[in-house]
């Protein structure tokens, strides 16, 4: 069985930062795609691919691997970057994002990229697929691999998400961990303006889930929560991860304008000029927003 190399928290944080830089570079090259969500989820994807998941980049179809379902497919640049860093494919391929002939489709497609697990984009169906896998693993095949499902907060507005939440609780899918990227924004604005979601924790608890609430940028909290979930029996676990959309790039943080916009394509009031956006973003990431110096500067 392949085992995860042991990374320190500091190494994981550095890896997450590199993944963020790749996201900016990929989006700049692609000229379309989503910025805020991928940057906000870089820490969680790093923790999953480099610490939590039982997986083998050299054998993506390994039968006993943990399954990672990305429900909100539009944040796939962060998954592609994490997969490249983990060794699923060469980092150069990241520059093909959203281009003709690329395996890195604008929204992920299972059949094109080994390790992608499923096709997603239309919101609200990931938790169902993850629950179907978890049901097959727990009851039909009696295997001990686990299923992780990443969802956005916006897709908590989809009725299907709650159909799946009921199914997972009914069937006591304790091999299922759902993680909600609670970043409070969606394309049309703040979630609580578009369609109020709170109290999300109480809602999932009322649906008979075990809920853990964490800072989605705290590497230790992410890893601890995934470990804690293993100890929860007879209930699926939800990790409600509070994140900052656009994390690491000051002008993108908490700003829903950057939900579906890449750097380098449009001048927007109050934002850096389009030609400066990626440069500033990369500089901020390399210097941790001015806290350290970078060999690039």
């Amino acid at each position: 069985m392949p085992t995860q190399k042991q990374y320190s928290i500091a190494q994981l944080e550095k890896k997450a930062n590199e993944i963020r830089q790749d996201i900016i570079t990929m989006l700049l090259e692609a000229k379309s795609g989503h910025s805020a969500g991928p940057l906000g989820m870089a820490d969680i994807f790093t923790a999953l691919y480099f610490k939590v998941l039982k997986h083998d980049p050299k054998n993506p179809e390994w039968e006993d691997r943990d399954r990672l379902i990305l429900s909100n497919g539009h944040i796939c640049p962060v998954r592609y970057a994490a997969m490249a860093h983990a060794g699923y494919f060469k980092k150069e391929e990241l520059m093909t994002l959203r281009k003709f002939g690329s395996r890195l489709q604008g929204h992920p497609e299972r059949a094109r990229l080994p390790g992608m697990e499923t096709t997603s984009g239309p919101l609200g169906s990931g938790l169902s697929q993850a629950s179907g896998m978890a049901y097959a693993g727990k009851y039909l095949d009696k295997k001990d691999w686990r299923v992780f499902c990443l969802m956005s907060d916006g897709e908590q507005e989809c009725g299907q998400t709650w159909e799946a939440a009921m199914f997972a609780a009914k069937n006591r899918l304790d091999n299922l961990v759902a993680i909600i990227d609670r970043n409070n924004i969606q394309i049309d604005g703040f979630t609580e303006d578009v369609m109020p979601l709170e109290d999300l924790k109480a809602k999932y608890e009322a649906f008979n889930w075990h809920v853990l609430e964490i800072d989605g940028h705290n590497m230790e909290e992410i890893i601890d929560a995934c470990n804690q979930a293993k100890a929860i029996h007879q209930k699926p676990t939800l990790i409600l991860a509070h994140t900052i959309p656009g994390k690491g790039v000051s002008f993108m943080e908490n700003d829903f304008k950057w939900h579906g916009t890449p750097p380098g394509v449009s001048d927007m009031p109050g934002e850096p000029a389009k030609d400066e956006q990626a440069k500033i973003a990369l500089k901020e990431l390399r210097t941790l927003q001015g806290k350290i110096s970078s060999e690039h500067e």
């Binding site: 399954r67 299972r110 169902s128 697929q129 896998m133 299907q160 159909e163 799946a164």
Partner: peptide, 21 residues
């Protein structure tokens, strides 16, 4: 049995098929 939830049923089945069913 999935209850009155045809959307969930379709995607659950997708997940089960991905697990070899």
């Amino acid at each position: 049995e999935v209850g009155v939830a045809e959307q969930n049923m379709a995607s659950l089945a997708s997940g089960m098929a991905l697990a070899g069913k």
